[in-house]
Amino acid sequence: MTEKYNIDDLQYLMARLRDPDGGCPWDLKQTFATIVPSTIEEAYEVAEAIEREDFGHLPEELGDLLFQVIFYAQMGSEQERFSFDGIVHTLVAKLVRRHPHVFPTGELRGERREGGLDEQKVRDSWESIKEAERTSKGEQGALAGVATALPALTRAAKLQKRAARTGFDWPDIDQVLAKAQEEIGEVREAIATGDLDAAREEVGDLLFAVVNVARHLKADPETQLRATNRKFERRFAFVESAITGSGRVLEDAGLEEMDAAWDQAKERGL
């Protein structure tokens, strides 16, 4: 019978990997900074598995992401900064604090609240508690605490949401779309003047406006763009196959032929 491992085993494994006496050379030379790219990559692989509904591989991807947390915890313990137990304690305490509608006594196993919950009131309470936490950390301003390392589309959406809570927002989607159209016009004007630096800046404004459109449609811009990327890959693969299947290379086909194949891909629902 295969042995069933648990979180204690995972922590033991990590300690062995980082053991100066017989540990793994690669793991031993890592630092907090060097494994950040792996953490980000693993998080995206979790997202991709979910978006593809690849639930067979999702546990493996979640395990890879969990390993990143264990890695940080091991290094924190080695440097006597923090431990895995400390990470868990901080997380549970924060979640209990942010869910007074579930934990009215402020205790994990305290008295339960009876009755239904109003989702909007819960959301407002959550944001109010988070704002109080930011203030206690010395983070001032409505936009404080939005991580600069976030993907640009995600950060734009978060900045817009924060601003919207103060009343700084378009009242309806038509005005948001009009703003996006205005930004397209400004891109055209900058290009017409030959000022490419200005045109590039205007493209940034256009992207920000499009994120605003997604937000008003209650769509996550990162998720939507990843879906569109996958759709582009499927359709372009069809175009490529249609042309190379006749023994030619893509460069031998004109744009008109490739557009016709692209339309076929769309008709087939790719």
Rank of each mutant, 00 (worst) to 15 (best):
A49L: 08
L17I: 01
V176Y: 06
R123H: 12
E133W: 03
K161Q: 14
D64I: 04
Q224C: 12
L270G: 03
R215N: 15
G141R: 05
Q224K: 10
L65R: 11
D195H: 14
V146N: 04
R200T: 09
W262H: 02
Y12A: 15
R162E: 14
V92I: 12
Y12P: 03
A198Y: 04
F32Y: 15
T223G: 08
I70S: 06
D205I: 09
V210F: 13
G23N: 01
H216M: 15
V46E: 03
W26I: 12
R97L: 12
N212V: 09
F103C: 05
C24D: 15
V102F: 01
E51T: 10
G115Q: 05
D118I: 06
P221A: 06
V88G: 00
V46Q: 00
L250A: 07
K179D: 02
R235C: 02
G106M: 10
T223H: 13
A142R: 06
D263E: 14
I129C: 09
A157I: 00
A253D: 01
E60V: 14
G141T: 13
V88F: 11
L143G: 04
P221M: 07
A198P: 02
A164R: 01
A261P: 03
G23M: 05
F32H: 12
D64G: 05
K137L: 15
A242E: 08
F236G: 05
Q74L: 01
E183P: 02
D174V: 12
R18D: 03
D205V: 08
E111W: 06
D169R: 08
V213T: 11
Q79N: 08
A192C: 02
E131T: 12
G185Y: 04
A237P: 03
E256G: 04
Q181F: 10
Y72M: 11
P20K: 00
S128Y: 00
L207I: 15
E111L: 09
F238S: 03
W26N: 10
E139N: 06
Q175T: 05
